[in-house]
Computed example of a mutant assay.
Amino acid sequence: MRLVIAVVQDKDSGRLAAELVKRGYRATKLASTGGFLKAGNTTFLIGVDDERVNDVVECIHRSCRAREQVVTPFAPVGNVDAEVPVPISVQVGGATVFVLDVERFEHF
């Protein structure tokens, strides 16, 4: 058995949840926040048999899209010599996926 952990942008979480349900997978959703943009994410915890891992990863790949977003970096607080922040384009979205071995699983 494996544990698939997928961190996805909130904009993609509904689409992924629907795809997982449609394909018969059960998942736990956790609200999370990204470190770089401080944007809302959803972390999915999905327990799955070894032979179904690739199918789950493919569901995630189909449901989560990378996109460009314009952000304005924060200027250092209290630094009067700091330059005015200039908006930059960064890639957001997609998914970060971890697949872990599960030593033991119980469901009560």
Rank of each mutant, 00 (worst) to 15 (best):
C59P: 00
R2L: 06
V102T: 14
P73Y: 02
V71P: 05
P85G: 01
E103M: 09
K22N: 12
L37W: 00
V7C: 06
L16Q: 04
E68G: 09
V4W: 02
G14K: 03
S89G: 02
N41D: 13
A6I: 00
P76W: 00
V48A: 03
V4M: 05
L45T: 06
E19K: 14
G14M: 00
D101N: 15
M1L: 13
V8S: 02
R62P: 05
F98C: 05
F105N: 06
E19H: 08
E51Y: 09
C64S: 12
V56K: 01
L30Y: 06
E51F: 07
V84K: 09
R65F: 11
G78Y: 06
P85M: 07
E103N: 07
A39Q: 12
R26W: 11
E106A: 11
E19I: 00
S13N: 04
D101G: 11
H107R: 13
L100F: 11
T72G: 05
R62E: 14
I5S: 09
T33I: 14
T72H: 07
A27C: 11
R67L: 00
E103Y: 10
E19M: 14
N54S: 15
P73V: 08
I46D: 04
H107V: 12
V21G: 03
E51D: 15
G94Q: 05
A75Y: 02
T43E: 07
G94R: 02
V56T: 08
N41H: 12
D12E: 03
G24D: 12
V57E: 14
N79A: 08
I5L: 15
L45S: 10
G94F: 04
K38W: 08
E19R: 13
V86Y: 03
V99P: 01
D55W: 00
A82E: 10
F105Q: 04
H107Y: 10
H61W: 08
T33W: 07
T33G: 03
